[in-house]
Design a protein around this nucleic acid. Structure first.
Length: 118
RNA sequence: GGAGUUGGCCAAGACAGUCGCGGUGCACGUCUAUCAUUGAUAUAUAUGCACCGAGGAAAGUCCGGGCUCCACAGGACAGAGUGCCAGGUAAUGCCUGGGGGGCGUGAGCCUACGGAAAGUGCCACAGAAAAUAUACCGCUCGUUGAACCACGGUUUAAUUAGUAAGGGUGAAAUGGUGCGGUAAGAGCGCACCGCAUGGCUGGUAACAGGCAUGGCAGGGCAAACCCCGCUCGGAGCAAGACCAAAUAGGGGGACAUAAUGCGUGGUCCGCGCUGUUCCCGGGUAGGUUGCUUGAGGUAUGUGGCGACACAUAUCCUAGAUGAAUGACUGUCCCGGCUUUUUAAGCUACGACAGAACCCGGCUUAUCGGCCAACUCCUCUU
């Protein structure tokens, strides 16, 4: 089995990339996360996160959310080749690790289908 | 043994495994560039190995510095801060030691602690009066009237005056207590205490002690304005330095004016705009740097009551930037819940909380534990 990694080029690194996703994308959301996806022309998916201080007040919890999202994205390498942006939902700060993981896996599946017909 | 006070330390609960992230070093492969000629250097990237990878508060951004850029003859005002004394320090509003005041049986703790006889202002309610003092209930001499009478007076009412001892109000009422004194009273007199002024003694000083003199100066609030002493230039690592696409525009050179257009002209040349190309400077995105060796930690010794200083030895301990330091599994520990309670089962974000240029402080949040010194109570010997 191919080892799942998450090198630096698999992240969105500048404002232009983010703007492109915000501008034109398909989305999926629940009480924990809102996930945007926009197909790219690369041979791998990319991930960006926008966890606002307004939604998640403590930096410890913001970091925890980012780590869970990144870890889960890394283990879901069969994702469609698109740029994803994950945003925190209203309940994001109070979900358990298990709940957040299940939520994310649901979003990846949904967006894979949506991107295919995009 | 119980209750407590002060100071210090630890703290992702511990261990193992699997996967992953950031940094540094080494090895090897690939790409590009340069030198050179089959190698070297640099950059980027993939892989492997090794090592390192959040805190006591990283937080609040409340003070003080370093560092960087800008400004700057000197002085004054304004503004802000600060406020018992001495010391420590790069510096402080911090720390240490000391003094005054308050709290506690005590170890100890708290303290914005300069000036109210420079000025202005405020002092609710209650109370007569809250500040050039005054007089509600009272107390008292005198005068006048009334009643009683043992003819000495007694009681009572009004009133001129005296008084601030007593009552009452208040957070606070013009020194306190006692004796004398008086018509009743009063620093009116005296003793002690307090206060003020001036010497003296001790102390670096804050201050303390004591002596003499004065009969008392006239309330509180300065975290009200204010006065006095002292301190303070501004902005911040998104500081600053360097490299530098794309697009638009600027400056300079060369070429073409053969072709096109416009302007200066009646026309031509020329010149300017225009066209092609090269160079230069500014500079956005982006990148590099600043960036972690520092008022540094640890140990020992010396000086000092101490904060701390000095000397010697030794150690190197995160450096990210849409932002690494994590996830899962197992066993144990702790906590919680339940039960059939020397035990078993179940359970999960296991305190507060996440570096962003770096230090010294303060403040706030905080599960649990360890160590030392001291105090009070009780028991035993």
């Amino acid at each position: 089995m191919q080892r799942a990694r998450l090198p630096k080029h698999a992240k969105l690194l500048n404002a232009a990339d983010f703007d492109r996703v915000f501008d034109k994308s398909v989305r999926s959301s629940d009480q924990y996360f809102t996930v945007l996806a926009s197909p790219n022309n690369l041979e791998y998916p990319r991930l960006g996160m926008a966890i606002s201080k307004r939604r998640v007040k403590l930096s410890v919890i913001r970091n925890r959310l980012k780590r869970i999202v990144r870890e889960n994205f890394r283990l879901s390498q069969q994702n469609y080749n698109a740029d994803y942006v994950v945003m925190a939902g209203k309940q994001g700060a109070i979900g358990t690790n298990q709940e957040l993981r299940e939520s994310l896996e649901k979003h990846w599946g949904l967006l894979k289908k949506k991107c295919a017909i995009f």
